[in-house]
Simulated assay, not measured.
Amino acid sequence: MEFLKANLDFGVMGLLGFMSFVMIAFVIERYLYFARLDLTSFDDAEDLDLALTRHLTAIATIGANAPYVGLLGTVLGILIAFYDIGQSGVIETTTMMIGLALALKATALGLVVAIPSLIFYNALLRRTEVLKARWRKGRRP
Rank of each mutant, 00 (worst) to 15 (best):
I24M: 05
Y33D: 11
L39M: 03
F21N: 00
L48W: 01
D44G: 13
I28Q: 08
I28V: 13
R30P: 02
R36G: 12
Y31I: 14
V27S: 13
V22W: 10
A35R: 09
I28R: 06
T40P: 11
A35H: 07
T40Q: 13
E29Q: 14
A45G: 13
V22T: 09
V22N: 07
I28K: 07
L48C: 05
Y31C: 14
A25V: 07
A35Q: 09
A45M: 03
L32E: 04
D43A: 15
L50T: 00
F34N: 03
L39F: 06
V27Y: 03
M23D: 07
R36F: 08
D43Q: 15
F34Y: 14
I28G: 06
F42N: 06
R30T: 01
R36P: 07
V27C: 03
D49K: 10
R36K: 13
D43P: 09
V27M: 00
F26N: 10
L37G: 01
D44H: 11
M23V: 04
A25L: 09
L50R: 14
D43M: 13
S20M: 12
L39A: 00
L39V: 05
L32A: 12
D43K: 15
D49G: 03
R36C: 09
D47H: 14
Y33Q: 09
I24F: 07
V22A: 09
D43S: 12
Y33W: 11
S41P: 01
V27K: 08
Y31G: 03
A35E: 11
V27W: 03
L50G: 06
T40N: 15
E29V: 06
A45Y: 05
L48N: 04
D43Y: 05
Y31D: 03
D47I: 05
F42P: 14
V27T: 14
T40G: 10
D47S: 15
A45K: 09
D38A: 07
D47F: 03
L32D: 06
D44L: 04
F34G: 01
D49M: 00
M23Y: 04
S41R: 15
F42V: 04
D49W: 02
F42L: 02
S20C: 15
D49A: 02
L37E: 10
Y33I: 02
A25F: 02
E29C: 04
D38S: 14
T40F: 08
L50M: 12
A45D: 11
R36N: 15
Y33M: 15
I24D: 04
F34I: 01
Y31P: 00
L50W: 00
F34A: 00
V27I: 08
D47T: 09
E46T: 14
